[in-house]
């Protein structure tokens, strides 16, 4: 695969980058305010799961309403050790009815899964930057095939958690492909490990790695995102 400068990139690369950047920006918009709200709640007294849920809910609601893409799940995942009444916690709402995620009740055993190792938590913590994790089967929250946009949240340099939202690959396909329908070349969006998110080539399956690209596809990085676009 040839690697070219972004200035040579066809318009479709900008379309793809803008599509995902819009989601990242929508999430980032609320992140600073959310951090301030959590910080002031902590200053007032012990921070509990219930208090955190009350703080996060309006931010999740705002993402469902205004992210510019169909959001399946949204919320805040507390850093391990942040809360006074639990080691970890997901203040998370998801599904068509934006139901509150109740891990223990939803699937007993899941609450033991250590999320600090999962990509949407691990990567933003270590880089300090927003990340798009997946595509992955999100077996912790939704059991759906999603990407997770994850924004690390810091208060005065201290990491306090991840502000995140899930977008179904169904929605990525349904909302991004129409924007690429005028393209005559094959446009394939892949993540950092080369896994297909979506492709205008109907024979290239979401989830498959691109291993046969060879010289037939040119790779363009999506600036500032852990994604790339392959163009025929």
């Amino acid at each position: 695969m040839k690697a070219l400068q972004a200035t040579d990139a066809p318009a479709a690369v900008d379309t793809v980058t803008a599509f995902f950047q819009r989601g990242v920006d929508a999430l980032g918009e609320g992140t600073r305010e959310l951090a301030a709200d959590v910080a002031s709640a902590r200053a007032e007294g012990p921070l509990t799961r219930a208090k955190l849920d009350a703080i996060v809910l309006p931010y999740a609601q705002a993402l469902f309403d205004r992210a510019g893409v169909t959001v399946y799940g949204a919320g805040f995942i507390a850093a391990i050790g942040l809360l006074n009444d639990a080691s970890g916690h997901l203040s998370w709402w998801q599904g068509p009815r934006h139901s509150k995620l109740e891990l223990a009740a939803q699937n007993i055993g899941k609450e033991h899964i250590d999320y600090s190792e999962l990509e949407w938590y691990r990567v933003p913590v270590s880089t300090g930057k927003p990340h798009i994790a997946g595509p992955h089967v999100d077996y912790l929250c939704s059991d759906e095939y999603t990407i997770t946009v994850a924004y690390p949240v810091f208060v005065g340099g201290e990491f306090i958690g991840v502000h995140g939202m899930d977008v179904l690959l169904d929605a990525v396909e349904g909302e991004l492909l129409p924007l690429l329908s005028g393209e005559t070349e094959e446009i394939t969006v892949i993540n950092a490990v080369g896994r297909v998110l979506v492709s205008t080539n109907p024979h290239r399956a979401t989830g498959d790695p691109v291993r046969d690209a060879g010289d037939t596809l040119t790779r363009y990085e999506c600036e500032g995102l852990p994604l790339a676009v392959l163009v025929s």
Binding site: I113, P135, H136, V137, Y139, Y145, G207, D208
Partner: peptide, 14 residues
């Protein structure tokens, strides 16, 4: 579970 999820199939993983 993690191995199953590597299939990238939500139905099979569930």
């Amino acid at each position: 579970t993690e191995i199953a999820a590597l299939s990238q199939s939500a139905r099979l993983t569930r």
